[in-house]
Design a binder for these strands. Structure first.
Lengths: 225, 225
DNA sequence: ATGTGCGTCAAACGTATGTTTCAAACAGAC
DNA sequence: GTCTGTTTGAAACATACGTTTGACGCACAT
């Protein structure tokens, strides 16, 4: 019943509202009234709205990057010197995300949506915070991708990684809405696990595509690598 | 020197600022001062900020959807009854986007970034506007995709289309920044055409991936379709 | 010349935001 | 019980926002 109650209630409410509506579109008054907490509590406990945003990310990103590090350790150990394959690397990441202890059943959606927003919304302070706080696991993931796709040129790999990030961040950032559409249109229920299970093969196939350019329009200049 | 000047200056400034910073993060005062126009001009000419956002989209989406319609017409005519292939369909879309008359050299980047924002930011009014205004070309594109991938289940196709949209919108929406990084890191210059030439094979390969799930972690439940 | 309609302008409106203030309530140590 | 540092409470702060207002200037038809 000490501070923890207020702090956690604020973080819970903020997390949910940010995921629903974005950062600029969520006011402190929405957060504090959802958390049933006084308005001043946010600035008292966190200092500012931006610091609250950082705290929301830190709360799940710190344990996640630890989990991810362990997953990569296990993966590399089980490969005994050989570099992990692309599929293994992607699955290690995906499984780590999905296995994170959830505060509630929507935890994974919220997690993903927040990451997507972080990447998409141009909140400069957030990107800076994430870069200097979590560059290590990100760099390790990149290194594994490089080892898993030695046949790609650096430029090709760079762009394809961007494509993967895009497909993932974008899909996850609106996964709730997309699930709703699918339910109404085809009457199908979908879990985040199922989305991930469909996403990984898509990414792997794209990452390993042969670079042949098929049937471009006649007047469309194909650049040479 | 009539109204057109003011209206277009507002649209130009708004387009650029929206693409840079998003919708909520761009105030009317930023727009009008960049356009060197009186604050009240926006509400006078457009009625509201939301209507201005719609106008920005309409200005390039209306000619684009016409161009795209023609491209699809040509493509279907050249196929004489056979449905166009996935590659042909993707190239028709890509080439139409690239061939659009540009207001300046960054036109295509701005175009793509705005589309990405429209998809990502939870601006309800924008989504509604786009749906009721441009559902026809979008639906036609979806139909072509369906004919080009008859082997996919409806659910698989739905998700893979979302993945494609994500990779495209996301990459294009930050293509300026990504190009800068590539220039600084590898000393390589990149055009939007080159990005497209790399993106299309990636998308096509992902779209046609075999749905085999390789090397999932032992305790990761693979959902069955 | 004169009135009419359209576009511009500076100023203000009401509302909502993030943040600050300061008194009251509370905890635990002595 | 009293003191001390921490946490809450209601209220106000200054600022920024989208929008509205009414006066003003200017073209052009009468």
């Amino acid at each position: 019943m000490a501070q923890s109650d207020t702090v956690d209630r604020i973080l819970d409410a903020a997390e949910e509202l940010f995921a629903e509506r974005g950062f600029s579109e969520t006011s402190l008054r929405m957060i504090t009234s959802k958390a049933r907490v006084n308005l001043a509590a946010v600035n008292y406990h966190f200092g500012s709205k931006n610091a609250l945003i950082h705290a929301v990310f830190g709360r799940f990103l710190t344990p996640f990057s630890a989990t991810l590090g362990n997953a990569f350790d296990e993966l590399e150990a089980s490969c005994k010197g050989n570099p992990p394959t692309l599929n293994q690397t992607l699955w290690a990441l995906t499984a780590s995300a999905i296995r994170m202890p959830q505060r509630n059943e929507r935890g994974i959606s919220i997690f993903m949506r927040l990451l997507g927003l972080a990447y998409t919304q141009s909140q400069g302070h957030l990107r800076k915070f994430l870069e200097q706080e979590y560059s290590q696991p990100f760099g390790r993931f990149m290194g594994l991708l490089k080892e898993a796709t030695p046949e790609l040129s650096a430029v090709d790999r760079y762009w394809r990684i961007q494509f993967m990030l895009g497909a993932t961040a974008f899909t996850m950032s609106s996964s709730d809405a997309l699930r709703d559409i699918l339910r109404n249109k085809l009457g199908v229920e979908t879990t985040v696990q199922e989305i991930a299970a469909r996403l990984v093969p898509f990414l792997a196939a794209g990452m390993q595509a042969h670079d042949t350019v098929l049937v471009p329009p006649a007047d469309f200049k194909i650049p040479v690598a």
